[in-house]
Nucleic acid binder design. Sequence first.
RNA 1: GGGCAAUUAGCUCAGUCGGAUAGAGCGCCAGCCUCCGGAGCUGGAGGCCGCAGGUUCGAAUCCUGCAUUGCCCA
Length: 551
Amino acid sequence: MRAYTFLLDVLKTAVNNQGLDWPEKAGIEPPRDKSHGDLASNAAMILGKKAGLPPRELAERVVKEVMQSGPMIARAEVAGPGFVNVFFSNIFWQQTIHAVQNQGQAYGRSQWGEGTKAQVEYVSANPTGPLHIGHGRGAAVGDSLARILRATGYEVSTEYYLNDAGRQMNLLGRSIWARYQQVKGIQAPLPEDGYKGEYILELARELCAEQGERLLAADEDEALRICRQWGVERILAGINSDLDMFRVEHQVWFSEQKLVQSGAVDKTLQDLQTSGLAYEQDGALWFASTRFGDDKDRVLRKSDGELTYFASDIAYHADKFTRGFDLCIDVWGADHHGYVPRMRAAVQALGRRADDLQVVLIQLVNLQRKGEQVAMSTRSGQFVTLSEVMREVGTDAARFIFLTRKSDSSLDMDLDLLKEQSMDNPVYYVQYAHARICSMLARAEERGVRAGRPTEEVISRLNTEEDLELLKMLERFPDTVQGAARTLSPHHISFYLLDLAGSLHRYYNRHPVLNCGDEDLAQARLQLMISVAQVVRNGLNLLGVSAPESM
RNA sequence: GGGCAAUUAGCUCAGUCGGAUAGAGCGCCAGCCUCCGGAGCUGGAGGCCGCAGGUUCGAAUCCUGCAUUGCCCA
């Protein structure tokens, strides 16, 4: 049983026996200072006034009850202004071995989000160019979030929203058409806002090789149509293969074009007008987003009749909710943050709570080489693609580094450091912990040492300070996963794993396992190692990072 | 001009329902291989948690103002 829930039961009972109710605001937390116990509660301080007792006096009474709760709790004491500090017994922590090994891959999972249908929409890059490094960060975060939410009981669907209807597509077609003509020796200027990247030229060359002179003979509209369609297909194929290499899979690809063609956008606009949330003014159609806390009302259809992105985005989210999702999580680039209030307004206009949409913002990745900034800009064509980075540093290193920061703070990523496989590269530190244990297990096998069942007698040998440190850390894993789910923060898992790996390396240097000179003790420590390896695997799996047995 | 976010050790960053003496990695200094993987470990120095007020038993955390930086919008 987990420490938190166990203690909560004990404390609730103790408080009730004083004729008081457990206060909702009361906390049970691990104190920063280990000498203050494994868990501490401030309940007595909160209840003091109501009970008409000094907090310390009340705490004394609670402590007396806690002390009599059985063998799992070693002792409890009053401290400071009225904290109740609780120390669990070694027996309690040793049970963690059973929990980890009985549950195996499922250790850390919970039913916390059970009954909630969630959708994670991420990457959703326009098919106008290859994925760059920023998309990679969004991909890592979105994919990891989906894994974490599944692990906490949510029913999760992942989705890529394909902006294949807008003027960007036409621009792509025109850019390729211009390059195509240039390849054929015809003076054709690039469109003013056109895509200038090298990849456009390459696409044009390939198209030439495939089509020869044929496009020059066709009329221009037809040529543009072919360029556009062909370009989108080729770029999408590239995006798909990049995501594949990055170990990211979207269950659903949702086409904006099909959404528009189905009439869903028009219907959404009509619905908004019917309910009085959209109105005509100055020849345009406006959404009254100010009614839901946005700064100003927003245009849905311009006076020239063209629909805005916002209009199809509302229809898209209406479609999401129609499909039965209780919670929609959108992973966006942070440069779209100004878009959040109006989207949340739209969600409310659709009759949902604003919180049914959660937007996770992904800040910039600053690529560096040898400490120097690498310039990135899609328009100028100077940018580093995701596939280049993956080839350089590997998928594991890239994913892990993306998940070692809060997603909404910018990230400096030095490719040269990541390649060095040095200690600056934290993924190796964690993977090494796993490989180290696997190597130890292989050695044990060679020596004919078999890891048996972890009986009570065996695990009762785990009593050193470092044993308990590892056991406590293993016990914390399910809470860590749940916390990551609650705050939509995969980086909590990364930091946990770095902590756990640190404790393992420390343990390894201090306590021989196979060479400890005591068969029973060796068996106990082997069980601990097996459990640590299991949790490292489970944690890395939530990040989509591999756990190699040797490196 | 308005809005959103950020500001924590020399550097890069954790710290999300307010808790006790604020943490990690890198870098720097000093150590640890007869031994299961040294891609490791141990110890040390290093802080006005941007500044100033406020809320309370208690603030890096919540509120207000200011400063600086980044982004978005007109």
